[in-house]
């Protein structure tokens, strides 16, 4: 009797435990899958079949139609769908990858080095920013204002900025970074629009990628900081005794050890950029519209077009699922666990 409650090894549950685990996992899986099933079913309905009440199983209680799929993929909307899909497929992975690269290096730096930005320098910087704004409102072009205040910043930094000895630390830098995500997008979208308008970058991939990288960096940094600080420092010390440079250490020791974290983080950022709506709406005027716009647009003057929406959501989620399935094994393969596992 007892063996039902006994586990064979530390990570393998007892038979009873396994059954209970499966029950819970199965229950949650149903909770996740049923809404998706409903999406699939809805994508094969027409408006009448949606409005007349719930129908659950195609061919049994309603006659499925391919109208919505045709409309999205080969009909009126196909041109938009394909263009927006391509844009999403270009922008999201590139942004996610760049954010991961910059974010992981920054996270490593924040964990392993000590930064002490002087309060005086920061205040000087803020002062110069305010100055440049005043200059712009006084009628100068922003280019000149920026150069003037930058030169001033440089001079002041060498003089006044050094007077104050008080300095901040790594945690303050990290908090400043994460605080960049605190303003709701609705408040920043028009200023960001104006920045790219001035740079003549509206409706380009560059604008979207820059914005996505910058807005996702804080998340990458915060997540990667924890993963990296879990990596035993002894490994790096050994390597540096052997004469490896910092870059080498980072590249060949830290990164491989952080793979589970990197993969999980990449997946998030990919998902966030893949699905981003408001910034994409404003930074694109025609050419670089992304797929979330098409989904939101299905709620037009005639109310939500559930069937079209379902098709689009399904189309949009498939590539991410594929990527998730491929990457999931890397999350699983915790390298530190080594061969002893199981």
């Amino acid at each position: 009797m007892k063996r039902w409650f006994q586990s064979k090894s530390i990570n393998t549950p007892s038979p009873v435990g396994a059954i209970l685990s499966y029950l819970v996992l199965g229950f949650w899986a149903v909770l996740i899958l049923f809404p998706l099933y409903w999406l699939i079913v809805t994508s094969f309905k027409n408006s009448g079949q949606v409005n007349e009440g719930p129908f659950y199983i195609p061919f049994v209680d309603f006659k499925p139609t391919l109208d919505a799929w045709k409309y999205i993929l080969v009909g009126d909307l196909s041109k938009d769908t394909i263009r927006n899909f391509t844009n999403t497929a270009i922008v999201a992975p590139i942004s996610a990858l760049l954010a991961l690269i910059f974010g992981a290096t920054a996270a490593y730096a924040l964990v392993r080095f000590e930064y002490r930005p002087r309060v005086g320098a920061i205040l000087t910087f803020i002062g110069c920013v305010i100055l440049s704004i005043l200059l712009v409102s006084a009628g100068l072009t922003w280019q000149i204002a920026l150069v003037v205040s930058f030169v001033l910043f440089f001079i002041l930094l060498q003089t006044i900025g050094r007077r104050f000895k008080r300095a901040l630390g790594n945690n303050d830098i990290a908090f400043w970074m994460i605080s960049q995500r605190m303003l709701p997008p609705i408040a920043v979208v028009i200023p960001i629009y104006l920045i790219f308008q001035q740079l003549h970058l509206l409706d380009t991939y560059t604008a979207l990628i820059i914005t996505y990288v910058a807005s996702n960096l804080p998340i990458v940094i915060w997540l990667m900081r924890d993963y990296i600080s879990n990596i035993p420092i002894e490994l790096e010390e050994c390597a540096s005794i052997d004469g490896a440079s910092r870059y080498r250490i980072f590249w060949s020791i830290v990164l491989p050890l952080a793979v589970p974290g990197l993969v999980a983080t990449f997946l998030f950022v990919l998902v966030f950029t893949w699905n981003e709506y408001l910034l994409a709406l404003f930074l694109s005027s025609a050419k670089v519209q992304t797929l979330p716009l098409t989904i939101a647009a299905q709620n037009a003057t005639r109310g939500p077009q559930w069937w079209n929406m379902s098709v689009l959501i399904l189309i949009m989620i498939v590539p991410v699922i594929v990527i998730a399935i491929i990457l999931e094994r890397y999350i699983t393969r915790g390298l530190l666990i080594g061969a002893v596992k199981g």
Partner: peptide
């Protein structure tokens, strides 16, 4: 993270909701 057959299947399934665009 237990050593259960089929756990990877569940992991992928459990990820799905996050992948849908919030508006969706």
């Amino acid at each position: 993270v237990q050593n259960l057959p089929g756990r990877r299947f569940f992991r992928v399934i459990f990820l799905l909701p996050m992948m849908i665009t919030p508006v969706g």
